[in-house]
C-alpha cells in the first residue's frame, strides 16, 4: 500500500510548515495538527497512511498518544505507519518504549525534508 495521506502532529510552527510544504510539493495529502489532543482525534477519525509524531507536544505528549493508539490489546490504527520525529533527548526507557510502538524514530535536527521524503518513499515501497 503506497503512502498517500499523511498526518503531521508538530507544535513548532516553522518545523511544521517546513514539512507540510515539502510533503505537499512531493504530492502527498497532508493534514497538520499542532497539539496532542487534536493529533490523537485526527489519527482516530481519518484513515491516514502515515503519521509523523512529535514527542514534546502540548495537551498530550507523543508517547501518550502512541500508547493509546498502539499500546492496548488492539492496534487502533492498523492501517497507519508511525514515524516519531523529535529533537528531545528522551530517557532511554521512554525512547525504547516509543520505538517499540513506532515504525521509525528520527531526530529532526539530523534529517532534512529531503531525507524525510527518502525515508517515506522507502517505507512506501516496503509496505
Amino acid at each position: 500500500m503506497a503512502i498517500k495521506r499523511i498526518l503531521i502532529v508538530e507544535d513548532d510552527r516553522f518545523i511544521g510548515e517546513m514539512y507540510v510544504r515539502s510533503l505537499k510539493k512531493a504530492g502527498y495529502d497532508v493534514d497538520w495538527m499542532v497539539d496532542g489532543n487534536d493529533g490523537l482525534i485526527a489519527a482516530r477519525n481519518k484513515p491516514y497512511d502515515l503519521m509523523l509524531l512529535d514527542v514534546m507536544l502540548p495537551e498530550r505528549r507523543g508517547g501518550e498518544i502512541l500508547q493509546i493508539l498502539r499500546g492496548g490489546a488492539q492496534d487502533l490504527i492498523p492501517g497507519t505507519k508511525v514515524i516519531v520525529l523529535t529533537n528531545f533527548d528522551q530517557t532511554e526507557d521512554a525512547r525504547q518504549s516509543m520505538e517499540e510502538h513506532a515504525d521509525g524514530y528520527l531526530i529532526k535536527a539530523e534529517i532534512t525534508p529531503k531525507k524525510l521524503l527518502a525515508v517515506i518513499e522507502k517505507m512506501s515501497q516496503a509496505s
Binding site: D12, I15, M18, R21, N87, I107, K108, A109, T112, P113
Partner: peptide, 18 residues
C-alpha cells in the same frame, strides 16, 4: 539546552537543503 538548540538547527538545515 541542546534540545532548544536543535529546533532552529532543524529549520535552518531543512530550508537550506530545500
Amino acid at each position: 539546552a541542546a534540545h532548544e538548540l536543535r529546533g532552529p538547527i532543524t529549520v535552518i538545515r531543512g530550508y537550506l537543503d530545500t
